[in-house]
Design a protein around this nucleic acid. Structure first.
Lengths: 249, 249
DNA sequence: TTTCAACTCCTTACGGCATAAGCTATTGTC
DNA sequence: GACAATAGCTTATGCCGTAAGGAGTTGAAA
């Protein structure tokens, strides 16, 4: 249920990602009625509406007035399609960043967070082996430009963990709400009613959990995100200061 | 491709989770040859081996010498089966924690991290609406016992983000390695060779990314995890100290 | 102008999935 | 011994990705 990146024919995928189509002599055969970009936009629209589960070749084809098989002329497999969608959805993500590194990183993180929330299916594409497309690469490059030269790798990983984790919680909560037709509130009261009758000794066995009042996950996740970000940047600032004045050690 | 928790008939699911089966008079009909626990263990074994993608009712049935349909006597749908698996896999996770809150939280986080790595499919079960089973509840309760009474909710969320994010990266990297038969190393060199021929101006367009040498994701993710954890706990310690001596404000 | 290769897009088909419907065989209660 | 309840089976439905191969379209070579 997670889609792994970059497992198809690497050359074909990379060529598609970077659009290195050497336009030689005019090609024979019927003019293509579609373009890779049109397919990507249709596919992204489908995924935005119905999630990665609802993304089928048939659904994408239908949105373009074609059959599923027509897409295979443009894209080798569904896996590569998802890779291309992933990179495409990262286009124009990062705004111009201010010169102070701390403000820059914060703005970067918020921009990425926002994009993930606009396309929640991005969170289901594995991060382990990067897709290596131009747009995702740009996002990383802009962060590296902003970061101070300290603990770069760990900072990058931790930042992505925080951004993705928070976005995931928020996206899933929203999705569950629309998907089931019950709000977090309704869901919670229904459950706690059932729980108290099914597990009458709950409050004794789990006193602290029972004391934790219900919460809007959306809001809590946002707070955890900004809070964690602040902590991380504080730590980074500490380290850079120590770097600048070594005698403080 | 993500499984959402708690969307089936809540009463039936909760009863299964908490095993509140009131054993009344002996039941008619053939003796059940299976138990819910046997099914859970078979299903978890399948998921450990082949991931949540490889988890099909047929596969679980086959492992028990039954057909897929036989399982539906014990478990309403596949979704509830995953909920039950999720809680089951949290059993006995948290060891006895030391009295100092900082050590306790660190040990807790490492234990959860380890469990996620043992059952990577856990990371694909949505965290948005908790499954509310006894074992997961115990994990949360133990953390709440350890935490100081400061920014509880934000700390809990941030901790889970870090633990899950890091575990996810590591698990996906391992999975990609075994799934494709190419190590991170091999994959990377193959890609960078292709990239330099397909995108010859890469180093000029992305100087900082190009300067970042390849890395073992496994190790980097571990460092990011412990690093982020340290930062978070530092921040928490700051806040508790401020709480204890208010004049320091 | 004819021929042909290259090309797009289609229909059909296969094996896999979750699970609904309905059957058979087994067991306890009357 | 009759009957109700239950376990586990077979079959069928409608999804999925995509392999195979055919039909129609176009540009270049003859």
């Amino acid at each position: 249920m997670v889609v792994y990146a970059g497992q198809g024919d690497p050359e074909r995928t990379l060529a598609l990602l970077w659009r290195t189509t050497s336009d030689g002599p005019p090609r024979r055969g019927p003019k293509p009625a579609l373009t890779v970009d049109a397919i990507l936009e249709a596919a992204i629209a489908v995924a935005d509406e119905s999630g990665l589960d609802g993304l089928s070749m048939r659904a994408v084809g239908e949105r373009l007035g074609r059959t599923a098989m027509a897409l295979y002329t443009y894209v080798p497999t569904k896996r590569e399609l998802v890779d291309l969608m992933y990179d495409h959805a990262h286009a124009g993500l990062v705004p111009d960043l201010p010169s102070g590194w701390r403000d820059a990183v914060e703005i970067w993180a918020l921009a990425v967070h926002e994009r993930y929330l606009r396309h929640p299916w991005l969170l289901q594409v594995s991060h382990a082996r990067p897709v290596l497309g131009p747009h995702e690469q740009t996002v990383l490059e802009k962060l590296l430009e902003a970061l101070p030269d300290v603990a770069v790798r760990a900072t990058v990983s931790a930042l992505f963990s925080l951004v993705r984790g928070s976005a995931r919680t928020i996206a899933e909560s929203r999705d569950a709400a629309t998907g089931t037709g019950t709000s977090d509130q309704e869901w919670w009261t229904a459950r706690s009613g059932l729980m108290s009758s099914l597990v009458p000794d709950f409050a004794e066995r789990f006193p602290r959990s029972a004391n934790l009042p219900p919460v809007e996950w959306d809001k809590a996740a946002h707070e955890a995100f900004t809070g964690g970000l602040t902590l991380l940047l504080d730590g980074l600032e500490n380290q850079t200061r120590r770097r600048m004045s070594p005698k403080a050690r």
